[in-house]
Amino acid sequence: MNASYTIIIADDHPLFRNALFQSVHMAISGANLLEADSLSALLTLLEKEPEPDLILLDLKMPGSNGMSGLIQLRADFPDLPIVVISASEEPAVVSQVKSHGAFGFIPKSSDMRALIAALNQVLSGDPYFPAALLNNPEACNELADKIAALTPQQYKVLGMLSDGLLNKQIAYELNVSEATIKAHMTAIFRKLGVTNRTQAVILLQQMSPEH
Rank of each mutant, 00 (worst) to 15 (best):
L56R: 11
L57Y: 13
A92S: 12
V97I: 10
E90Y: 01
S95D: 00
F105D: 12
M67E: 07
V94A: 15
I85G: 02
I82A: 04
F77A: 13
A75E: 15
I106C: 03
F105E: 08
A92I: 14
A102Y: 00
G101Q: 01
V84R: 04
S88L: 08
F105T: 10
A75F: 02
I71N: 00
L80A: 08
L73T: 05
S88V: 09
P81C: 01
V83L: 01
I71K: 07
M67Q: 11
Q72E: 15
K98D: 00
M61Q: 12
E89T: 14
P62Q: 14
S64D: 06
K108Q: 10
I71L: 10
P62D: 14
K60A: 12
S99L: 04
M61A: 12
A92E: 10
V93L: 11
F77Q: 09
S88D: 12
P62S: 08
P91H: 01
K98T: 03
E90V: 11
G69W: 07
L73Q: 09
P78G: 06
L57S: 14
V93H: 14
H100M: 08
L56D: 07
G69S: 02
G63R: 10
L73K: 02
A102F: 01
E90L: 09
G66A: 11
G104F: 04
V84M: 04
R74Q: 15
I55E: 06
G101P: 03
L70T: 04
G66L: 06
L57F: 14
P107H: 09
L73I: 12
S95V: 05
G66R: 08
P62K: 15
P81E: 00
K98I: 04
P91R: 05
S95R: 10
A102Q: 07
E90T: 11
Q96I: 00
V97E: 00
V84E: 03
Q96P: 02
L73V: 08
I82K: 03
S88Q: 08
L73S: 10
V94S: 08
A87P: 03
I55G: 01
I85Y: 02
K60Q: 14
M61N: 10
G63E: 12
I82G: 02
D76H: 06
F105M: 13
L59F: 11
D58H: 11
S68H: 02
M61H: 12
S86I: 02
